[in-house]
């Protein structure tokens, strides 16, 4: 089956603090077909997100398919508040890297 990378399908892939205790991820598409494909493939399902980041499902606080923006959005809890000593990403803005190479199976 054909596989594509999320990098090639999404317009925006980003992460950012959502308050001091959480980091939220937005994956935004320009076309409905790509959005539907990724939703359907499960490449960014709760289970997949846990596998990608090596976290238990209890750390996913929100997981939404947001149709108006053609976006998949999920939020994880931090293990320490942003800006605590040892936190390498105070803004939470560089946590999306592993999503770029996520492979998406299926045809548009």
């Amino acid at each position: 089956m054909a596989k594509r990378k999320l990098f090639d399908l999404a317009k925006t892939i980003r992460s950012k603090n959502a308050g001091v205790d959480r980091i939220t991820f937005d994956v935004i598409f320009t076309d409905r077909a790509s959005y539907d494909l990724v939703c359907r493939s499960g490449a960014l399902s709760r289970e997949s997100v846990c596998r990608i980041f090596g976290i238990p499902s209890t750390r996913i606080t929100d997981h939404v398919h947001f149709d108006p923006a053609l976006a998949i959005k999920f939020t994880i809890s931090r293990t320490m508040p942003s800006g605590s000593p040892g936190d390498g990403d105070i803004f939470g803005s560089q946590q999306y890297g592993p999503l770029l190479d996520v492979e998406v199976a299926g045809a548009i």
Binding site: K16, A18, R22, T24, F66, P68, A71, K73
Partner: peptide, 8 residues
């Protein structure tokens, strides 16, 4: 609407 928030 989604930016820097847990839920859109």
């Amino acid at each position: 609407a989604m930016y820097e928030r847990t839920n859109p």
